[in-house]
Amino acid sequence: MRDLRLAVRAGGGFGLGLAFFLIVVTLVPFAVGPRTELLAAIAPGILWLGALLACLLSLDRILALDWEDGSLDLLATAPLPMEGTVSVKALAHWLTTGLPLVLASPVLGLLLSLPAAGYGPLVLSLLVGTPALSVIGTFGAALTVGLRRGGLLLSLLVLPLYVPTLIFGAEVARRGAGALDYATPLLMLAGITCGTIAVLPFASAAVLRVNLR
């Protein structure tokens, strides 16, 4: 709860990730040319990549602020399990970053002339996939909390972990845009999301305890 209120209060939390997503998507046509059919072909991939990068952008704020003002020390000695704390952090990150991206994606799909069949699968895949991005990102943030220049290292650590999610997520969106059957990759994506939500908080909590020593 507090994290949510904080993110809203601090401003930027909502806006920044979303604005970044918009800018990335806007820049793509400048880079590849304005041909509609080309844009339509790469739209699902671009939207997924943009969402992923927008998530990445705000990761280091998940834990760094709490680390700096000492809240993490106090939370660690509080009667909350660390696993719960990091799960809530990941949830707050998703609600402030992932969910707005999901909601904004159809509009940005319009900009990239995504075929009509593609909107449903795109939103669905982002809805199912972005929680995994937040949870994995929280793990990365826990690894690099308290490091100088942690942000760069964070990207290096987290991006390889994003590969499976990106592959299946973009596959759903792509097959959806091509009006193909996308049930299998969607199930795989859901599996990855459920798996990471179930297991990774333990790893993040363990890592955070080590870092607080």
Binding site: L161, V163, P164, I167, F168, I192, A203, V210
Partner: peptide, 18 residues
């Protein structure tokens, strides 16, 4: 060590995903 454990799982996942 923890990164190696988590990374192994994700490397395997990536293998299948790829």
């Amino acid at each position: 060590s923890i990164l190696c454990l988590v990374g192994s799982v994700f490397a395997l996942l990536s293998r299948y995903a790829v």
